[in-house]
Design a protein around this nucleic acid. Structure first.
Lengths: 216, 216, 216, 216
DNA sequence: GATGAATGAGTATTCATTCAT
DNA sequence: GATGAATGAATACTCATTCAT
């Protein structure tokens, strides 16, 4: 957690620093992200940064927290469809909420990717929470679906959860890149707004395959 | 491409350098991989390295090439089953060949992961080739499957290719982590041999879902 | 000298600040003693410190003054034995008074040691006063002793004063270390009370040598 | 120990770096001694320093080694008088050899003082060797003197050793300061040569007191 | 009189790359 | 062709001091 000093800052200034930090950690992985660059761009003194954060890692972990919080906010913003009714509706909703997060916060999403695959100094708990968390969640959903009778009983829970989570995790990245254009542009321009309408049909196709399979 | 001097080296020495470089870039991302460590372990002079390679990036790109070549070698080593017969058999074979590569060359595979998600200075062409290549290949397979009549006609080709490729890309990593144990151990011990038998049932379940879907 | 604001402080608060400052300068030499740590522990604002003291050096010099004053207080507290009677009795008393000071105020004593041997920005006058002062005092005593007839007339005054003062200066440190234990403990625990009885015999032996010599 | 690189340097350059380092660590204690200043004055690149030494501490410990070696060289240069004959002659010789070292190498001697009283990161063994070493040596000498019959049998060995060693340790510093002049000058001018003849009478007086005592 | 955020020159250390031998 | 010392810009981080509120 940042020091109180940071939260006492005028909203505008605090947000400016955060935005620059997010951009920096989205464009470079942990080791290469440079505190010097951040403070230079923010126009604050080196020492001031250390009034706000204990060290580089504290800033980084705070960004991870922000990312998780923002993701949660979107996942809990609109109430999900009634689980009791149809587990597939919930999965569809989950995937879409994930997408919404990535399109609304491509830089935070990128930081999330780096956290998963990079060398960031994450507490082990956080790291496992990030990977196993999604898996376990989907596994529970699959179980529920079987009980409900909307998921075939002979399906392997783990295999299904793996497929769901790997799609959940990579769909946003795929669509972002599919949009073409300059990914660097996407990352450096937080204003970028994705026309989700464009991806609707594709989205439905994926769900269709997940439900019915590719086979004939 | 390395300079001619590199290829004039005795096979043994050249391979020793390569092995150390692979281990280094598997354990650290591009920026943190250290030329100093490589030459120290290889017992060659700093300057000699620059007789063999223009710079750090040239070595790195060469390793990426090696990785791609090795992957290709495995994918083309044993002839795949007759495509004409059953496209699903080919997909199963592909996934398994991908796994074989990851288990046989965990360090190269790790370098591949880092290339996809890290900060490496890859030429845009190489980067897109890595992501789009797999996709296009699967898309072609899907098309063929439809023609053959083993893949349902109403399936979206792109969606199916996306699902195949995302599983193809992540399956190895998932199984490696699922094995538990120390991933560092896996990476630093190239002798490590995976008991593929253990993963067979899981593998079949995934294929089953891909073919028949989760739905009931 | 501290600013008037410092002396206007409630006694309790002023003393708390002083105690923390003493502990800080006893544990770290001048440059490494941290104003930040002092104010943090004292629970006062950084800026407040600079209302009390011009700068770090002013605080430091004030501590040196305190140390000298405290030493003087002990040296003059109980009246020394009658000089006229026996100069050796006075020297014995002096050495013991010095020890009392070190055992009663190990932190102040430590600050004194650092002042003699460290990098502290002492005014030259203060520094010479600290070293030469003791010497001159002992030299006067020796002179008096010769007049009294208790010190051999062929003794060199300076040499004798040097020996006395060097023992006076180092005896406390030696005994403290000889006690064994953790010197850091001694320094950080001002409550520490030295069992002076234990050092009595050693003390007498030293005086014996000073008076009679080692020779046979 | 410095890296081989350092010893491969031309004698002149290597010595220049050492001289500057010695001056730096003589004028500032460990923490305040600045690698930046040393390399700037030596006219070498920051990075070069780290080709020669692992880090700041390695340089420092090397200087301590140099100091000890130089002291040993002087203490063993001219063979000491025959111990069997007269232990007091040996003590006189020891004190003089100590003095010679301090006058010939005032800066190294100063580094030694700082090591004893400052916050330097010395291995515990080294630190205790420096303090206890001298004491034990003198204690052994006293014992021998008693056996020889030149030291009175009723003398406390520890007390005598303490007095000898404290004089041994401080005599040089005292004489240097007594010379008056600017101690900074002495430290920064390694050419400074002390006229040892001047201190002869004083030296003899001290020995006289140690042997016969001040008493009448 | 009290506050505490802002400052910026300072620190040790790293490392890909160059170049004279 | 091999060597390995030299380089210097880069890094995260510290801390006494100032000053607007």
């Amino acid at each position: 957690m940042p020091k109180p000093t940071f939260f006492n800052l005028p909203d505008e200034k605090r947000q400016a620093i955060l935005d620059l930090a997010i951009a920096e950690f989205a464009q470079h992985d942990y080791k290469n992200a440079s505190i010097s660059r951040i403070v230079a761009q923010a126009g604050i003194a080196k020492g001031s940064f250390y009034q706000y954060f204990e060290d580089k890692q504290e800033l980084y972990l705070y960004l991870i927290d922000l990312m998780a919080a923002e993701k949660m906010r979107l996942l809990q913003g609109e109430p999900p469809p009634d689980t009791a009714a149809d587990i597939f509706a919930l999965i569809r909703w989950l995937l879409r909420a994930g997408l919404n997060f990535e399109f609304a916060n491509p830089q935070l999403a990128q930081i999330g990717y780096r956290a998963l695959y990079g060398d960031a100094p994450l507490p082990t708990e956080t790291r496992t929470a990030m990977t196993k968390g999604t898996l376990h969640y989907f596994q529970a959903l699959v179980h529920q679906g079987v009980v409900q009778g909307v998921i075939a009983a002979d399906i392997d829970h783990e295999a299904a959860a793996f497929i769901f989570s790997v799609i959940f995790t990579n769909l946003g990245d795929y669509l972002l890149k599919r949009q073409g254009g300059d990914p660097a542009h996407l990352l450096s321009d937080p204003q970028y707004l994705f026309a989700t309408a464009e991806v609707e049909p594709f989205f439905e196709q994926i769900l269709h395959i997940l439900q019915r399979g590719d086979g004939r």
